[in-house]
Nucleic acid binder design. Structure first.
Lengths: 213, 213
DNA sequence: TAAACAATTTTGTTTAACAATAATATAAAA
DNA sequence: TTTTATATTATTGTTAAACAAAATTGTTTA
């Protein structure tokens, strides 16, 4: 076994993210302790670490519950993502290497291809890769970390805009425009376009949340 | 005594923020346990909570140290503040009440007054109040929390741009422009102006860090 | 001086315990 | 029966002592 605390942390985190432990569910320390096979003290530390990532909520004398978010909170987080990703794209436009630009274009072309063949899972994966390249080029590790914390939090809500009719083609076009702005190494344009992109994701979820959440 | 863990947490946090515990300093669990009068387990939990706020760093088998930041990291955080405060001002412009606008104007006039009389401490306090009113009006609690975490982290570096010659008058003028944009309830303008304001703070620190840090 | 080894310190974790609080079940009163 | 009060149980917050594993320090030797 890895370090007990790390193991317990990952054990609980996995089950929150895959939906085994649902929002608002109580997380009993003794039960987890027996189930995972580490002491209650260690479970408690793992829970504290999860609280840090906003995946659980700890109330005085009441213990931990899986954190649940209202639609408004989810939209707030997407608004934050909008400006943070804008910042990252702006920085990336100024410092992206030729190699990274080639990689980005390659990913984009694959996205085009997969979408044409309606392979949505792979499209989503490439989407993630596309944005990751921008993060890597951005040189603001602190902002990247914040974006990742937000993305992790929202993971279990399955905000799959890819399932909304017509959204895919729009999304692809937005990526093309982002790619162009980065190729032009135009910081203001890159920021504007990625903000519009994330803004559209937000609006799609605002409109279709009944299907998605 | 309040709850031991809360007490230990605040005890250590205070000393990090006031500079008693300096960046990179080792935080020994047994020593803290004896000093604060709580068990080592409780110290450990307090340290985990502080890690969450980026005030301490915990390394496997090496324990906790007071987190230290490079100038680049500080500038990264200010860049994040720039876009987050921009977001908050944009939202505030759309939802600020008449009462809050009056309060904001009142604070601005006092700032003018204190600056004229060179009362810099009070100017700083009002500055904080000015921005707090915008946060309150913004209706994005998640973003406000992030800004506050960043501000707390940077507190102990004493980024007092107020000490840079000529910066004060500039700062006052920027606040006037922000106030105007909010009075006009113009989201895009409010965002642009507060971004310029925080951007100027960042540039001032980039230029004068040798005096300030 | 550097390398090798031993001694010491510190951390990560466990176990068992107990008080304080919260949740639940039970009994008494309206 | 419903509500209210009381007792019971479960759960959390915390402590203390213990020990292995890892890191640090100190000492000796080449």
């Amino acid at each position: 076994m890895t370090r007990p605390m790390e193991y317990a942390y990952q054990f609980i985190k996995d089950r929150i993210l895959d939906g085994t432990y649902r929002p608002s569910q109580k997380l009993n320390e003794s039960d987890l302790s027996k189930l995972i096979g580490v002491s209650r003290n260690t479970v408690k530390k793992a829970l504290l670490k999860l609280e840090r990532e906003n995946l659980v909520e700890i109330e005085e004398n009441k213990g931990a519950t899986v954190k649940s978010h209202t639609l408004d909170e989810i939209l707030n987080y997407l608004e934050i993502r909008e400006v943070l990703e804008g910042l990252l794209a702006r920085r990336a436009a100024a410092s992206i290497t030729d190699g990274q630009l080639r990689e980005l274009q390659e990913v984009y072309l694959q996205m085009e291809d997969h979408l044409k063949n309606n392979r949505l899972d792979e499209y989503s994966n490439l989407n993630r890769k596309f944005h990751q390249i921008i993060y890597d080029a951005s040189e603001n590790r602190q902002a990247v970390e914040m974006v990742n914390v937000i993305k992790t939090q929202l993971l279990r809500y399955h905000l799959r805009t890819v399932l909304v009719p017509g959204r895919n083609q729009e999304s692809l076009e937005e990526h093309r425009q982002i790619l162009e702005a980065l190729q032009a190494r135009d910081p203001a344009l890159a920021e504007e376009r990625i903000r519009r992109h994330v803004g559209n994701i937000r609006q799609t979820i605002q409109t279709h949340h009944q299907i998605l959440v």
